[in-house]
Design a protein around this nucleic acid. Structure first.
Lengths: 334, 334
DNA sequence: GAAGAACGTGCAAACGTTTGCGCATGAAGG
DNA sequence: CCTTCATGCGCAAACGTTTGCACGTTCTTC
């Protein structure tokens, strides 16, 4: 473990004081051209790299050009796309982003929040695990810029960018109803997530508008992972009086549902119609091509990062709240 | 920006010296039960959280229980799965992992390497951008434990876990040949990646073993992203004398190829057979179900993390090199 | 009952930076 | 020739920890 060279080493080699070295590095203060050259040379020769830890310890407010992004599940393409959106604008502005995958685990979320904070990132983007997330609130109170994505935080004054889940679900279910379906199975999201609830509301409202009664036995709730889509579809489709259409509330669960539909040998859309949430790889070349609600995941990430950068620049600016519209892509599965 | 409380505040409140506080936190040294209680109380009341930055500055070797993972492209499911493998074993061992997505950009890779290093992570897992990556070598020389995944680094002495790409490709192409194909299009990986070259070698060796001549016009190389799969498939399939089968060297490019096959209205496997690399969501319920080489992505991540933890514990242990076998899953597309 | 041993705690240095202040030096201005 | 001032640089404190050392008590042990 070779000890890396420090300011002191550079200073010694260039025969100046460490403050001079620091100042030439940061372009702060007046330093003679000749001295600067000598310092630069010494730095090059020693392969000097500033120690970010020390730098941040000294100056808590020294920008590290580092963003934190905390996501529930990296295997969910929605979040991967979102992450890319964040990445791209961050990088364009010379920021790097530290990604943390908390796997819907509250303790883990808290841990990462801690880490990012104590790494002094300039700001954090995350979907709060639920509406009143005290850990997140604490971070906000500490003065770290935070922007919420996808899910919201009840406590008002935060920048956030969400998808209009209610409208998305409403349109989807209205489309299903327009296709003549009356028994529409719901594979919903977790009840304690705002996205889950909003999509459920869309499902309900579509029924109400069409004067269709809700059938509780057709409404089940998963955890946004593939397995639960598979299991719930199994339950629903083996009911004595099964639904004729399925509305599945996210991409992974849609994949799961498709697995059981295939296992059951059901034909889409004749025997069972299907509309899913989230775009899926290959959805348009699937057989039949899948009708689904495309969420602008990349754009969510992009906007969030832009908002965050603005806030970092001007912490006093009023909070902006964006709501992006999802798009119902009608193909052949319903 | 409220200033968080420090050891000093806690010490003052508990009427002890800061060293006493530090010691009760870290369970190091003997501290009386009563004093401990007083300190704990003060910490609770102040909501004290240790400052990780300061801690790491002081003790460069103090484990932060933090791992770094640098991946080329988060949207590639292979890496998402790999990341989950890393995550899971890390978390089980009380480590957190900082994920960095460098998007095949060398400058970005270097940047993240810098950041992780100066964040003093305990170790780093990454697929080196190419065999002789000086930045990575530098990190290794600095004494930071590194394990390479997926791709290798020419300079020997590193822990690494790879997939046997040669065997995987060999089996795949042998299977294609066994199905009677003689004109097999290759949508390969980048020539400067070890995975790309190994898979190419498998493709070539399968031809050689079957006594089949290589046809350079059927061999093209993409960048592992969906678009290039789409474009190259387009080029290949509109050749005057097009291939009757396609071997596609990763998942995203396979998806791209499927897009153009659909656009061209070609029937799989009759008009064009296909074998891809990487498991794909819905591959088994696709029409037809896709024959492909499944890489044990999750296991790669898992093993890598285990290796890294072992190395952190015992930096002197000899380097281990793992080669995991991919599996040819024969379905209907070839 | 005296000599250690063990225990509990405080003191201060060190980690690698940034930065306010102060001190020379030389040029400009009267 | 004496002030004034800008320029260029050094000194030392501070950021929040950890940790070796020292010191005073109390408990064994013969």
């Amino acid at each position: 473990m070779k000890k890396p060279s420090s300011l002191i080493d550079v200073a010694r080699r260039a025969k100046v004081n460490i403050s001079t070295v620091s100042r030439t590095i940061n372009q702060t203060g007046k330093i003679g051209a000749e001295t600067q050259a000598r310092v630069m040379k010494a730095m090059r020769e020693l392969g000097y790299k500033p120690n970010r830890v020390a730098r941040r310890l000294r100056a808590r407010d020294a920008s590290t050009h580092l963003l934190g992004l905390i996501i529930p599940n990296i295997q969910n393409i929605f979040f991967a796309d979102l992450a890319r959106g964040v990445e791209d604008v961050a990088y364009k502005n010379n920021y790097a982003v530290l990604l943390c995958n908390y796997d819907e685990d509250e303790a883990k979320e808290r841990f990462y929040l801690d880490v990012l904070q104590s790494e002094s990132v300039d700001g954090i983007i995350l979907p709060p695990i639920h509406e009143t997330d005290p850990a997140v609130l604490q971070v906000v109170r500490n003065g770290t810029p935070v922007v919420c994505v996808d899910r919201s935080l009840s406590s008002g004054n935060l920048d956030k960018v969400e998808v209009d889940n209610h409208t998305g679900a409403l349109k989807a279910v209205e489309h299903i109803i327009a296709k003549g379906h009356r028994r529409i199975g719901l594979i919903g999201g977790p009840a304690d997530s705002s996205t889950g609830r909003e999509r459920l509301r869309g499902y309900k409202d579509a029924h109400a508008k069409a004067g269709l009664p809700l059938k509780p036995e057709l409404m089940r709730f998963g955890d946004y992972k593939q397995d639960s889509g598979e299991t719930i579809a199994q339950e629903l489709l083996t009911l004595p009086d099964p639904p004729t259409a399925l509305f599945v509330c996210n991409g992974l669960m849609t994949a799961g549902a498709l697995e059981t539909i295939a296992a059951l040998g059901l034909k889409i859309p004749k025997q069972i119609a299907l509309v899913g949430f989230d775009e899926l790889l290959l959805a348009d070349v699937f057989n039949p091509p899948l009708t689904l609600v495309r969420q602008p995941a990349y754009e969510v990430g992009k906007s969030a990062a832009e908002l965050l950068l603005k806030r970092i620049e001007d912490p006093a600016r009023p909070a902006t709240s964006l709501k992006l519209l999802p798009e119902l892509i009608i193909r052949k599965s319903c």
